[in-house]
Design a protein around this nucleic acid. Sequence first.
DNA 1: CTGAAAGCGCTTACAG
DNA 2: CTGAAAGCGCTTACAG
Lengths: 338, 338
Amino acid sequence: MNGKMLRPTSFDVAERAGVSQSTVSRALRNSPGVNAETRARVSAAARELGYVVDRHASSLRLKSSETIALVTICRPGEDRSAINPFYFALLGSIAAATSARGFNLLVSFQENPDNFRADFVASGLADAMIVIGTTSNRPAWDYFAQAQASGLDFVCWGSPGSPFHWMRSENDIGGQLAAEHFVRDGRRRIAFVGPQQSPQRQFDERRDGFSAALAAHGLTAIVAEPPAAADRHAQGVAAVQALLEAHPDTDAIFAASDMLALGVLQGLKDAGRRVPEDIALIGFDGIRAGTLADPALTTLEPDLDAAGEALVAMALEDDERTRSGTRIPVHLVVRGST
Amino acid sequence: MNGKMLRPTSFDVAERAGVSQSTVSRALRNSPGVNAETRARVSAAARELGYVVDRHASSLRLKSSETIALVTICRPGEDRSAINPFYFALLGSIAAATSARGFNLLVSFQENPDNFRADFVASGLADAMIVIGTTSNRPAWDYFAQAQASGLDFVCWGSPGSPFHWMRSENDIGGQLAAEHFVRDGRRRIAFVGPQQSPQRQFDERRDGFSAALAAHGLTAIVAEPPAAADRHAQGVAAVQALLEAHPDTDAIFAASDMLALGVLQGLKDAGRRVPEDIALIGFDGIRAGTLADPALTTLEPDLDAAGEALVAMALEDDERTRSGTRIPVHLVVRGST
DNA sequence: CTGAAAGCGCTTACAG
DNA sequence: CTGAAAGCGCTTACAG
């Protein structure tokens, strides 16, 4: 256990297999033009010695690390367990897509200027970078905007700013699905709760798709901007109070995200409104906590597997032209809140 | 943008600064014995060229990658967004501890034999490995047990098996705190809901601390084993039915984890029992979803920051003797469910 | 099909 | 305080 044996190198394997080191390398990489019998002998020797290729030496030679760097922007001072679970789920799906390609995933949570870092590709640690997380951390996104301006490239989820390569949900369709669901259900006093000034264009798209679909039915969405608060949940709670004061007869609410919707749900309970009897509620994101709520939250769920795969593919893709505009499909999951 | 410039090397910096390449390396690593003026000139040249040290070359030379590998074991076939949020929170705190040391974090979610992998340290990709996640995936833990037997070392959270270096919460104290809280509240028909045959020794410790504290008050815990189900939440729902059938006058439940407790909460609502009026409920883990439940869940919350830091420290520590037995403090967070 | 050799970009004894 | 040189462990032209 102690006195740990030195890690064997390809030379050790070569000696054991009775071939040259170059042949070991070729055999283990499945290069063409290696005698089958030789290859087998090399594999056996490698196995016996517990040999594993040194990834640093390999990456240095190949100039490729087969790893993706994933940066998650957090709210400053935010507790790790308070990170919007949607981003954890997205992280999970990115990890799946990464590992399906045999790539590694390097993750980094960033919140303060002291730990801002965008040099994963520049240092060779990763072949490409993906950035996700809250749009509310302006300094972080400014930092990444500047990194991009100086040549560091990456793709991101949502729309934290203008110059980035992005990927988003089909937000307009999601909004439309929510609107049509409400209308079919006979709701008439329908509100949208979501940030209006956020750099997160996705919220606007959801609202616009929602409003347009309502308009097609001769209805106008009440747009309620949540007040500033510690996080989306708290914003949702606060938004309801203001909304019900101004529009006490509201009978349906579409919230721009699930965390917001869960706050809205809490606020509605606090106000003594029954969901869905008095007010129906739809969120957006499909986070797990929505299924645990009471009533469980009806929501628009993006296809996260597709999102992870598309983000990784996009990040690895060199062709500039294919690096913008991708949309991830969403579908309505009807649960108890409508 | 296209025609991407070759990455500059330390030789480029050397030329620009008018010094040798070795001096560049020394200056940038803050090695002692470099003239301050020279160091400044090198730094300036590096900045101007956008030079970043190649981590593969550096790691190859240094034989250290300054990165930690974190493996999260998942339930086979489990959706990424269904991973117990406790492990995501733990991942976040490990990331924080890692980055505080200037280390990188490589993450890997593993569930099936096709993607089992434990060679992160052997390949030089990481200096140490941490393994967390569900204990219910037996083949995965068998795989890691075997990896350890053949010399790959790592530390893990909980107690997925015998031969591992582990770190756990102060489970017995947690159980005791739960018991005392119930007793102080006047509860008398008190149950523990948790797996009895799980390799996760933490559940047993929670139960035993709980039972012992109740016994000190002349009370005996009703122990209810949840039936098999898709996940902990579903197990919790199912456990309540059986429990209330056998013990309809139960007035308090301590669940071995928050996900279980949230399922129990759902089951209690389904059964028409009010929480906390009829039955008080305490969970364990302090996951975010507990704060979103209605009523919010009283729980035992481990100090996750401490857990992340301790896991990283333990993983990096070479001394065998300091690699077992560490305990993470927990405290009772009282919310609406009690 | 296989081997000898160069070189990826660093770090650090070894000289001066 | 600084430079020339060796070497970390690979991959792959280049010869044979």
